[in-house]
Design a protein around this nucleic acid. Structure first.
Lengths: 173, 173
DNA sequence: CAGTTTGTTCATTTTTTCTTGAACGGAATG
DNA sequence: CATTCCGTTCAAGAAAAAATGAACAAACTG
């Protein structure tokens, strides 16, 4: 009647599942951090971090096993990362599984983020501005003039953001 | 037995509490949106939005009344907004209450955001990088070389971000 | 000074977001 | 073809973040 003799706290499912090394843990930490600033889920940072520090492309199940996350999270996270080009699909001969590698060109990463995350918001902002012009056009008091002045400032901000955003990725080589 | 005769859905507490106008609602919407991109709570966007479109500085209770938010949220939101200079404290003669006004200089807003939100993260990133160098220094395999190469890339990203951030606010006039 | 008024803090509740895991579809395999 | 293998989707549960409101401190008032 062997009681509590397990040598491993979380017995790594027998097969070749290396626990994360110190370096890996720290690198992943950097990206989990970074990704939270950008308003993305932790799991996305974990996935990108591990791929970033991995010498070889990895399949989904390796990520699941080494990061201890669910298949669902891994799938969603990879989908998101691929959407703005932070992760590339790599063909691996003689293996049915998809393999993934981190894109490590900062310029591309920034461009992808701006395109996917900022762009749509700027677009919807343009629509809102249009609607706002119409609304304020119908206000005929002194207040109306003030409204229009402020909305003009908003429009100016919007135009500036539009033109500055693309320049940023250009500044990162 | 009067049933459901209330003319106002939410009876505005008798005193001079104007409901938000269409224009105000729309402007606030713009900022609620914007603020979520930056990872801040909705209430912060509401507060800044109302101040932005208000011709005169407002005291805290006016924000609470017109936005239908709690005193706690308003206080916290204003604190945050003041911290990076998006809201100014304005002296109002003959009134004990603090009055607040929106700072509408985009350059200042960006500078404040970078200083308060990005800066600290870049600082902690520098520490992590240092620790990472130490860790990877102790890895004497072929893998170690790869680690150090990637960490070098990380360091490069870090340096670039540091130098680019301040330039951004300069590009917004 | 006793009583207000004003604003902050913080434990609790509410809301939102993330993760999980089971179910499914499709592609490769034998 | 029946079966196994991969990856996706999505409803439900767990975790994280934000809003609330009551208690408090400080500053003003009469």
């Amino acid at each position: 009647m062997p009681i509590a003799t397990a040598p491993n706290p979380l017995p790594l499912a027998s097969a070749g599942i290396e626990p994360l090394s110190e370096v890996e843990v720290e690198v992943i930490g950097v990206f989990v951090n970074a990704v939270k600033i950008l308003g993305m889920p932790k799991s996305v940072g974990e996935i990108y971090g591990l791929l970033f520090i991995a010498p070889e492309p990895m399949p989904l199940d390796a990520l699941v096993a080494r990061l201890n996350i669910s298949k669902g999270s891994a799938s969603q996270g990879l989908k998101l990362l691929r959407a703005f080009g932070a992760v590339k699909l790599v063909y691996s001969p003689g293996d049915r599984r998809d393999h993934f590698a981190a894109e490590t060109d900062l310029k591309k990463l920034a461009a992808g983020f701006i395109r996917e995350e900022i762009g749509p918001h700027l677009d919807s902002g343009a629509e809102r501005l249009e609607r706002l012009r119409e609304l304020s056009g119908g206000v005929n008091t002194e207040q109306g003039d003030f409204f229009r002045e402020r909305i003009g400032k908003l429009a100016h901000w919007h135009a500036r953001s539009r033109s500055v955003m693309p320049l940023i990725s250009g500044m990162l080589d």
